[in-house]
């Protein structure tokens, strides 16, 4: 039986939403889903090498930022980059950087982004994958 397909249009670059995306990716990995992630505007900023490990972007709960980050530590929750990496190790996850988004943040080459990224693509890739997906999410 063919694996189910998940596409994720990942717009947010904030640690809270990226953490949530990592949790969902874990679920997809447990079920051997094929996953295509399209890294759009703010997320492309987070995927830049110099930004990925910083925790200064916690968008929805800015007044609870310290509580949130402390709770992640208390719960032994992996950093979002590690959650994404684990999912990549366990199932077929491809991470595509939107070419336009990359340029917005001065990322012209794949090497400008963390090694989780597989390629730089145009929006047509997303449209094609989303049409074929069993689940399509926007975060």
């Amino acid at each position: 039986m063919a694996n189910k397909k998940l596409t994720l249009a990942l717009f947010s670059g904030s640690v809270d939403k990226l953490t949530a995306a990592g949790v969902i990716l874990g679920g997809a990995a447990a079920e051997d889903m094929d996953v295509d992630i399209f890294v759009l505007l703010q997320a492309a900023f987070a995927f830049k090498k110099e930004n990925a490990m910083t925790n200064d972007r916690v968008a929805e709960i800015t007044d609870k930022k310290e509580d949130f980050l402390a709770s992640l530590k208390r719960l032994n929750a992996p950093h979002w980059t590690e959650a994404f990496r684990t999912a990549k190790e366990m199932t077929n996850v491809r991470i595509h950087i939107c070419g336009f988004a990359g340029k917005v943040w001065h990322g012209e080459k794949l090497d400008d982004f963390i090694d989780l990224a597989d390629d730089i693509v145009g929006i047509g890739e997303y449209m094609t994958a989303a049409e074929q997906a069993d689940i399509n999410l926007f975060i």
Partner: peptide
């Protein structure tokens, strides 16, 4: 027991 969701599920998968 040292992990939170989705840690146990991923541990089971592994």
């Amino acid at each position: 027991r040292g992990t939170s969701c989705p840690g146990p599920l991923l541990a089971a998968k592994k």
